[in-house]
Simulated scan of single mutants.
Amino acid sequence: MTRGDVAGAAPTVTTGLGLYDATAAAASSVVIRRYSTSFGLASRLLPAHIREHIEHVYALVRVADEIVDGPATEAGLDPTLAGRLLDELEQDTERAMTIGFSVNPVVHAFARTARTTGFGAELTQPFFRSMRADLTRSEHDDASFVDYVYGSAEVVGLMCLRAFVYRAGRPTFDEAVLVTGARRLGAAFQKVNFLRDLRADFLELGRSYFPGVDVRSFDEATKARLVADVQDDLDAAARALPLLPGRARPAVTLAHALFQELNDRIGATPAERLVTTRVRVPDPVKAALAARVLVGRAPVPRVRRGNRPGGTA
Protein backbone atom coordinates (compact mmCIF):
# COMPACT_ATOMS: atom_id res chain seq x y z
CA MET A 1 0.00 0.00 0.00
CA THR A 2 1.03 3.62 -0.55
CA ARG A 3 0.05 6.88 1.07
CA GLY A 4 -2.68 7.46 -1.47
CA ASP A 5 -4.44 4.18 -0.69
CA VAL A 6 -6.23 5.60 2.39
CA ALA A 7 -8.68 8.32 1.38
CA GLY A 8 -8.49 11.41 3.52
CA ALA A 9 -5.45 10.26 5.48
CA ALA A 10 -1.77 11.08 5.29
CA PRO A 11 -0.03 8.36 7.29
CA THR A 12 3.66 8.78 7.93
CA VAL A 13 4.25 5.06 7.43
CA THR A 14 2.99 2.70 4.75
CA THR A 15 3.04 -0.61 6.57
CA GLY A 16 2.34 -2.15 9.94
CA LEU A 17 0.49 -0.79 12.95
CA GLY A 18 1.14 2.82 12.04
CA LEU A 19 -0.76 2.45 8.79
CA TYR A 20 -3.60 0.60 10.54
CA ASP A 21 -3.82 3.35 13.17
CA ALA A 22 -3.99 5.99 10.44
CA THR A 23 -6.62 4.04 8.50
CA ALA A 24 -8.75 3.60 11.63
CA ALA A 25 -8.47 7.33 12.35
CA ALA A 26 -9.51 8.13 8.77
CA ALA A 27 -12.57 5.89 9.12
CA SER A 28 -13.66 7.71 12.27
CA SER A 29 -13.15 11.06 10.59
CA VAL A 30 -15.53 10.04 7.81
CA VAL A 31 -18.25 9.19 10.34
CA ILE A 32 -18.33 12.63 11.96
CA ARG A 33 -18.25 14.41 8.59
CA ARG A 34 -21.15 12.35 7.24
CA TYR A 35 -23.36 12.42 10.33
CA SER A 36 -22.98 15.76 12.08
CA THR A 37 -22.60 19.24 10.64
CA SER A 38 -22.61 20.90 14.09
CA PHE A 39 -20.04 18.69 15.80
CA GLY A 40 -18.05 18.41 12.59
CA LEU A 41 -17.90 22.20 12.30
CA ALA A 42 -16.91 22.71 15.93
CA SER A 43 -14.26 19.97 15.83
CA ARG A 44 -12.47 21.75 12.98
CA LEU A 45 -11.46 24.45 15.45
CA LEU A 46 -9.42 21.93 17.45
CA PRO A 47 -5.73 21.19 16.93
CA ALA A 48 -5.33 18.07 14.80
CA HIS A 49 -4.13 15.82 17.63
CA ILE A 50 -7.17 16.67 19.79
CA ARG A 51 -9.64 16.68 16.89
CA GLU A 52 -8.61 13.12 16.10
CA HIS A 53 -9.58 11.97 19.60
CA ILE A 54 -12.98 13.69 19.37
CA GLU A 55 -13.59 12.02 16.01
CA HIS A 56 -12.76 8.63 17.54
CA VAL A 57 -15.23 9.14 20.38
CA TYR A 58 -17.98 10.40 18.08
CA ALA A 59 -17.57 7.51 15.63
CA LEU A 60 -18.00 4.78 18.24
CA VAL A 61 -20.97 6.55 19.82
CA ARG A 62 -22.60 6.91 16.41
CA VAL A 63 -22.06 3.28 15.42
CA ALA A 64 -23.63 2.10 18.69
CA ASP A 65 -26.54 4.47 18.17
CA GLU A 66 -27.14 3.10 14.68
CA ILE A 67 -27.50 -0.40 16.13
CA VAL A 68 -30.43 0.65 18.32
CA ASP A 69 -32.03 3.11 15.90
CA GLY A 70 -33.31 3.05 12.32
CA PRO A 71 -30.50 1.52 10.23
CA ALA A 72 -30.43 -1.78 12.10
CA THR A 73 -34.20 -2.08 11.82
CA GLU A 74 -34.06 -1.25 8.13
CA ALA A 75 -31.52 -4.05 7.73
CA GLY A 76 -34.05 -6.47 9.23
CA LEU A 77 -32.67 -6.82 12.77
CA ASP A 78 -35.11 -7.47 15.59
CA PRO A 79 -34.38 -6.11 19.11
CA THR A 80 -32.88 -9.42 20.24
CA LEU A 81 -30.33 -9.51 17.45
CA ALA A 82 -29.62 -5.80 17.80
CA GLY A 83 -28.96 -6.37 21.50
CA ARG A 84 -26.56 -9.16 20.68
CA LEU A 85 -24.64 -6.93 18.28
CA LEU A 86 -24.52 -4.17 20.88
CA ASP A 87 -23.15 -6.63 23.45
CA GLU A 88 -20.49 -7.73 20.98
CA LEU A 89 -19.54 -4.12 20.26
CA GLU A 90 -19.17 -3.41 23.98
CA GLN A 91 -17.07 -6.53 24.50
CA ASP A 92 -14.85 -5.62 21.56
CA THR A 93 -14.48 -2.08 22.92
CA GLU A 94 -13.47 -3.23 26.40
CA ARG A 95 -11.04 -5.79 24.98
CA ALA A 96 -9.47 -3.19 22.68
CA MET A 97 -9.04 -0.74 25.55
CA THR A 98 -7.16 -3.49 27.38
CA ILE A 99 -4.97 -4.91 24.60
CA GLY A 100 -4.76 -1.91 22.25
CA PHE A 101 -6.12 -3.52 19.10
CA SER A 102 -9.39 -4.32 17.35
CA VAL A 103 -10.26 -5.68 13.93
CA ASN A 104 -13.04 -3.04 13.85
CA PRO A 105 -11.33 0.21 12.76
CA VAL A 106 -13.79 2.44 14.64
CA VAL A 107 -13.30 0.45 17.85
CA HIS A 108 -9.54 0.40 17.32
CA ALA A 109 -9.41 4.19 16.98
CA PHE A 110 -11.64 4.68 20.03
CA ALA A 111 -9.48 2.38 22.12
CA ARG A 112 -6.37 4.33 21.17
CA THR A 113 -8.04 7.48 22.43
CA ALA A 114 -9.21 5.84 25.66
CA ARG A 115 -5.73 4.47 26.38
CA THR A 116 -4.03 7.75 25.52
CA THR A 117 -6.31 10.12 27.42
CA GLY A 118 -6.92 7.92 30.43
CA PHE A 119 -10.49 6.64 30.58
CA GLY A 120 -11.94 3.17 30.41
CA ALA A 121 -14.94 1.03 31.25
CA GLU A 122 -16.08 3.45 33.97
CA LEU A 123 -17.33 5.62 31.10
CA THR A 124 -18.09 3.06 28.39
CA GLN A 125 -20.23 0.79 30.56
CA PRO A 126 -22.80 3.50 31.40
CA PHE A 127 -22.86 4.45 27.72
CA PHE A 128 -23.66 0.95 26.52
CA ARG A 129 -26.20 0.53 29.31
CA SER A 130 -28.10 3.54 27.98
CA MET A 131 -27.89 2.24 24.40
CA ARG A 132 -29.27 -1.09 25.59
CA ALA A 133 -32.18 0.71 27.26
CA ASP A 134 -33.33 1.91 23.83
CA LEU A 135 -34.02 -1.72 22.95
CA THR A 136 -36.03 -2.52 26.06
CA ARG A 137 -37.67 0.69 27.31
CA SER A 138 -40.13 2.89 25.42
CA GLU A 139 -40.88 5.34 28.24
CA HIS A 140 -38.84 6.75 31.12
CA ASP A 141 -39.56 7.73 34.69
CA ASP A 142 -37.49 10.36 36.49
CA ALA A 143 -34.83 7.91 37.69
CA SER A 144 -34.38 6.07 34.41
CA PHE A 145 -34.27 9.37 32.50
CA VAL A 146 -31.42 10.67 34.67
CA ASP A 147 -29.55 7.39 34.22
CA TYR A 148 -30.17 7.38 30.46
CA VAL A 149 -28.95 10.94 29.93
CA TYR A 150 -25.85 10.30 32.04
CA GLY A 151 -24.93 7.20 30.05
CA SER A 152 -25.88 8.40 26.59
CA ALA A 153 -24.52 11.95 26.79
CA GLU A 154 -22.80 13.05 29.99
CA VAL A 155 -20.14 10.35 29.83
CA VAL A 156 -19.45 11.35 26.22
CA GLY A 157 -18.79 14.87 27.50
CA LEU A 158 -16.38 13.39 30.04
CA MET A 159 -14.59 11.42 27.32
CA CYS A 160 -14.16 14.61 25.31
CA LEU A 161 -12.94 16.47 28.39
CA ARG A 162 -10.21 13.87 28.80
CA ALA A 163 -9.09 14.58 25.25
CA PHE A 164 -9.04 18.32 25.93
CA VAL A 165 -6.95 18.24 29.11
CA TYR A 166 -4.58 15.29 28.91
CA ARG A 167 -0.85 15.71 28.55
CA ALA A 168 1.49 12.81 27.91
CA GLY A 169 -1.37 10.40 28.43
CA ARG A 170 -2.22 11.68 31.91
CA PRO A 171 -5.16 13.82 33.01
CA THR A 172 -3.96 17.25 34.16
CA PHE A 173 -7.01 18.55 35.97
CA ASP A 174 -9.00 17.99 39.11
CA GLU A 175 -11.46 20.84 38.68
CA ALA A 176 -14.98 19.88 39.68
CA VAL A 177 -16.30 22.79 37.62
CA LEU A 178 -14.85 21.31 34.42
CA VAL A 179 -16.34 17.91 35.13
CA THR A 180 -19.72 19.43 35.91
CA GLY A 181 -19.52 21.58 32.79
CA ALA A 182 -18.73 18.60 30.56
CA ARG A 183 -21.62 16.62 31.98
CA ARG A 184 -24.12 19.47 31.76
CA LEU A 185 -23.12 20.34 28.19
CA GLY A 186 -23.57 16.71 27.17
CA ALA A 187 -26.96 16.65 28.89
CA ALA A 188 -28.01 19.84 27.11
CA PHE A 189 -27.06 18.40 23.73
CA GLN A 190 -29.06 15.25 24.39
CA LYS A 191 -32.16 17.01 25.67
CA VAL A 192 -32.17 19.44 22.75
CA ASN A 193 -32.04 16.50 20.38
CA PHE A 194 -34.94 14.87 22.23
CA LEU A 195 -36.93 18.09 21.87
CA ARG A 196 -36.42 18.48 18.16
CA ASP A 197 -36.98 14.77 17.48
CA LEU A 198 -40.21 14.42 19.49
CA ARG A 199 -42.29 13.25 16.56
CA ALA A 200 -39.70 10.93 15.01
CA ASP A 201 -38.87 9.28 18.34
CA PHE A 202 -42.55 8.70 19.10
CA LEU A 203 -43.91 7.68 15.71
CA GLU A 204 -40.92 5.96 14.14
CA LEU A 205 -39.11 4.49 17.14
CA GLY A 206 -41.97 4.23 19.64
CA ARG A 207 -40.04 6.09 22.34
CA SER A 208 -40.93 8.88 24.74
CA TYR A 209 -37.84 10.10 26.58
CA PHE A 210 -39.12 12.94 28.75
CA PRO A 211 -40.92 11.54 31.81
CA GLY A 212 -44.65 12.22 31.79
CA VAL A 213 -44.58 13.98 28.40
CA ASP A 214 -47.10 12.79 25.83
CA VAL A 215 -46.32 14.02 22.33
CA ARG A 216 -50.03 13.84 21.46
CA SER A 217 -50.83 16.51 24.07
CA PHE A 218 -47.62 18.52 23.93
CA ASP A 219 -48.36 22.14 24.88
CA GLU A 220 -46.66 25.47 25.43
CA ALA A 221 -46.25 25.01 29.18
CA THR A 222 -44.52 21.67 28.71
CA LYS A 223 -42.29 23.06 25.99
CA ALA A 224 -41.33 26.07 28.14
CA ARG A 225 -40.43 23.82 31.06
CA LEU A 226 -38.21 21.58 28.92
CA VAL A 227 -36.53 24.52 27.17
CA ALA A 228 -35.81 26.09 30.57
CA ASP A 229 -34.27 22.83 31.79
CA VAL A 230 -31.96 22.77 28.78
CA GLN A 231 -31.08 26.39 29.44
CA ASP A 232 -30.08 25.54 33.00
CA ASP A 233 -27.69 22.92 31.62
CA LEU A 234 -26.27 25.37 29.09
CA ASP A 235 -25.79 27.99 31.80
CA ALA A 236 -23.90 25.53 34.01
CA ALA A 237 -21.73 24.47 31.07
CA ALA A 238 -20.97 28.11 30.22
CA ARG A 239 -19.38 28.64 33.61
CA ALA A 240 -16.78 25.99 32.76
CA LEU A 241 -15.77 27.42 29.36
CA PRO A 242 -13.15 29.88 30.71
CA LEU A 243 -11.40 27.03 32.55
CA LEU A 244 -10.84 24.93 29.45
CA PRO A 245 -7.36 24.85 27.90
CA GLY A 246 -7.00 27.51 25.23
CA ARG A 247 -6.52 24.89 22.53
CA ALA A 248 -9.99 23.45 23.20
CA ARG A 249 -11.97 26.54 24.22
CA PRO A 250 -12.94 27.86 20.74
CA ALA A 251 -14.37 24.52 19.61
CA VAL A 252 -16.39 23.99 22.79
CA THR A 253 -17.54 27.60 22.72
CA LEU A 254 -18.81 27.12 19.18
CA ALA A 255 -20.57 23.87 20.09
CA HIS A 256 -22.20 25.66 23.03
CA ALA A 257 -23.25 28.57 20.79
CA LEU A 258 -24.75 26.25 18.17
CA PHE A 259 -26.89 24.45 20.72
CA GLN A 260 -27.80 27.72 22.45
CA GLU A 261 -29.09 28.94 19.10
CA LEU A 262 -30.98 25.68 18.59
CA ASN A 263 -32.56 25.83 22.04
CA ASP A 264 -33.60 29.45 21.42
CA ARG A 265 -35.21 28.46 18.12
CA ILE A 266 -37.05 25.57 19.76
CA GLY A 267 -38.29 27.94 22.44
CA ALA A 268 -39.59 30.33 19.78
CA THR A 269 -41.36 27.56 17.84
CA PRO A 270 -45.04 26.95 18.71
CA ALA A 271 -45.57 23.68 20.54
CA GLU A 272 -47.93 22.27 17.94
CA ARG A 273 -45.37 22.93 15.21
CA LEU A 274 -42.54 21.44 17.26
CA VAL A 275 -44.16 18.01 17.10
CA THR A 276 -44.44 18.14 13.31
CA THR A 277 -41.25 19.93 12.28
CA ARG A 278 -37.59 19.26 13.08
CA VAL A 279 -36.07 22.58 14.12
CA ARG A 280 -32.56 23.22 12.85
CA VAL A 281 -30.00 26.00 12.71
CA PRO A 282 -29.54 27.12 9.08
CA ASP A 283 -26.07 26.64 7.64
CA PRO A 284 -25.48 30.40 7.15
CA VAL A 285 -26.18 30.97 10.85
CA LYS A 286 -23.77 28.16 11.78
CA ALA A 287 -21.12 29.70 9.54
CA ALA A 288 -21.66 33.14 11.10
CA LEU A 289 -21.27 31.74 14.60
CA ALA A 290 -18.10 29.93 13.57
CA ALA A 291 -16.70 33.11 12.01
CA ARG A 292 -17.31 35.05 15.22
CA VAL A 293 -15.44 32.43 17.21
CA LEU A 294 -12.54 32.41 14.74
CA VAL A 295 -12.02 36.17 14.94
CA GLY A 296 -12.24 36.15 18.72
CA ARG A 297 -15.73 37.59 18.93
CA ALA A 298 -17.50 34.49 20.17
CA PRO A 299 -21.06 34.89 21.42
CA VAL A 300 -20.87 35.41 25.17
CA PRO A 301 -22.84 32.64 26.90
CA ARG A 302 -25.38 34.34 29.09
CA VAL A 303 -26.89 33.04 32.29
CA ARG A 304 -30.50 34.04 31.93
CA ARG A 305 -33.08 33.96 34.64
CA GLY A 306 -36.09 35.08 32.65
CA ASN A 307 -37.43 36.17 29.27
CA ARG A 308 -36.56 32.88 27.65
CA PRO A 309 -38.23 32.23 24.32
CA GLY A 310 -41.41 30.31 24.84
CA GLY A 311 -41.59 30.80 28.59
CA THR A 312 -39.86 31.91 31.76
CA ALA A 313 -37.55 30.17 34.15
Rank of each mutant, 00 (worst) to 15 (best):
S38G: 08
G186W: 07
S138M: 01
A121P: 10
A111W: 03
D142E: 15
A268V: 02
E66N: 10
H53K: 13
R265P: 09
A82G: 14
P211A: 10
R249D: 07
P105V: 07
A59W: 13
L178W: 06
K286C: 10
V146C: 03
P242S: 02
L241P: 05
P270L: 07
G212H: 01
S208F: 04
R297M: 02
P171C: 01
A228Y: 08
R84D: 06
R170G: 05
L81D: 10
L46H: 05
G100E: 08
L19M: 12
E74A: 04
P282M: 04
E122D: 15
I67A: 01
L45N: 00
R278C: 01
Q91P: 00
V165I: 15
A24D: 04
E94K: 07
Y35K: 15
L161Q: 12
V213I: 15
S217V: 11
A200Q: 13
M159D: 05
L244I: 10
S152R: 04
P47Y: 06
T37N: 12
I54D: 00
L289I: 05
Q91R: 15
L185Y: 04
A48G: 03
Q125K: 14
E66Y: 04
R216S: 13
G18Y: 10
K223R: 15
V230M: 04
S130L: 08
V63G: 00
L86M: 03
V57H: 11
G311A: 06
R225P: 02
G246F: 09
D78P: 02
R305E: 12
F189Y: 09
R308E: 07
T124Q: 01
R162L: 05
V179F: 05
R239I: 03
T2L: 15
P171L: 05
F39N: 01
S138Y: 00
R51A: 14
L19G: 13
P299F: 11
V230N: 10
V103C: 08
T269M: 10
D142L: 13
S38Y: 10
V295R: 15
A24V: 08
G212P: 00
A176D: 05
N307Y: 05
R34W: 12
E94W: 13
L89G: 02
L45M: 04
F119E: 09
A96L: 09
D214N: 10
S43M: 11
I54S: 02
H108S: 08
V300C: 06
R183C: 14
A9Y: 10
A257T: 03
A298M: 07
V179Q: 07
T2M: 14
G8P: 01
L89A: 09
D235C: 13
D92A: 13
E154Q: 15
S36W: 01
V156Q: 11
R33G: 01
T117S: 14
V177S: 15
R84V: 03
T253W: 13
R278E: 06
P126I: 05
F202A: 11
Y166H: 15
D233V: 12
F110T: 12
R62F: 06
A298D: 11
A221W: 00
L41G: 10
L17D: 11
P301I: 13
D283P: 00
G118E: 15
D78R: 03
G83Q: 05
V215M: 06
L123P: 03
D141S: 12
